[in-house]
C-alpha cells in the first residue's frame, strides 16, 4: 500500500508542478485538480470514506466553479524565462531544498511506524463513541460531539469566507 501511495503522491507533485508552468489558465486549473483527485484515492486507500466523499465533492464543485470563471477571461499569461546566470537564487533554492529535506527526515524519525500509531485519546474515542453519542457513524459522533468546537470553527470560517468574497466582488451596491 505504501508503494501505491508513493506513486500517487509523485503524480500529485507532478500535477502541481505542471500547474505552475502551464501556458494558459484553463490547463493550470485542470492540472491543479490532479492534486485533489489524487488525494481522494489516497483517502480511499487509507480507508477513510468520510474524508474521501467530502474531498471528491468539494474538488468537483471547485473545478466546475473555476472553469466557469476562467473560461471567458484572458487565457494567455505573461511568462518570463528564469535567468540561468542568476547563481545566487539557484544556490539559495538548492540549499533550502537540502536543509528542509534533512530537517523533515529528523522530525519524522521519532514518529510511530506508518499505520500503527494510535494515541490513547483515539483508543478512548473508538471504544466509547457509540454508547456516549448514540451515533453509528464514529466520525460524525466525533466531529459534532467530542470535537464540537472544531466544527463550529469550520462553519464560521466558511461564513467569513463568503462575507469576504461578497465584500470584494460587489462593484455596485444592492438596490
Amino acid at each position: 500500500m505504501e508503494l501505491a501511495l508513493s506513486v500517487i503522491l509523485v503524480l500529485m507533485i507532478l500535477g502541481a508542478l505542471f500547474a505552475i508552468h502551464a501556458k494558459d489558465l484553463l490547463s493550470a486549473v485542470i492540472s491543479c485538480s490532479i492534486v485533489g483527485y489524487g488525494l481522494v484515492i489516497c483517502f480511499l486507500l487509507l480507508r477513510a470514506p468520510d474524508l474521501a466523499i467530502v474531498q471528491i465533492v468539494v474538488e468537483t464543485i471547485t473545478l466546475v466553479i473555476m472553469v466557469a470563471v476562467v473560461l471567458d477571461s484572458t487565457r494567455q499569461e505573461p511568462f518570463t524565462k528564469p535567468d540561468p546566470h542568476d547563481y545566487v537564487a539557484i544556490a539559495t533554492a538548492l540549499l533550502l531544498i537540502v536543509s528542509v529535506f534533512f530537517l523533515l527526515k529528523a522530525a519524522t524519525g521519532s514518529l510511530d511506524p506508518f499505520g500503527e500509531g494510535s494515541m490513547r485519546m483515539a483508543k478512548h474515542y473508538i471504544e466509547g463513541a457509540a454508547d456516549k453519542t448514540g451515533s453509528a457513524n464514529l466520525v460524525t459522533g466525533v466531529i459534532f460531539d467530542f470535537r464540537g468546537y472544531d466544527t463550529l470553527g469550520e462553519a464560521t470560517v466558511l461564513v467569513t469566507a463568503v462575507l469576504g468574497a461578497l465584500t470584494i466582488l460587489r462593484i455596485r451596491g444592492k438596490k
Binding site: 461564513v159 461578497l166 466582488l169
Partner: peptide, 30 residues
C-alpha cells in the same frame, strides 16, 4: 437517534450549501 447530531448535520448542511452557492453567484454577478 443520536440526540442532536442529526439536527447539527441538517443545519450545517444548509449553511454549507448556501455558502457555496453564494460564492458561485457572487463570481457570476461580478
Amino acid at each position: 437517534s443520536a440526540g442532536v447530531i442529526p439536527l447539527y448535520n441538517i443545519f450545517v448542511g444548509m449553511e454549507v450549501a448556501a455558502s457555496i452557492l453564494t460564492i458561485f453567484l457572487a463570481l457570476l454577478i461580478f
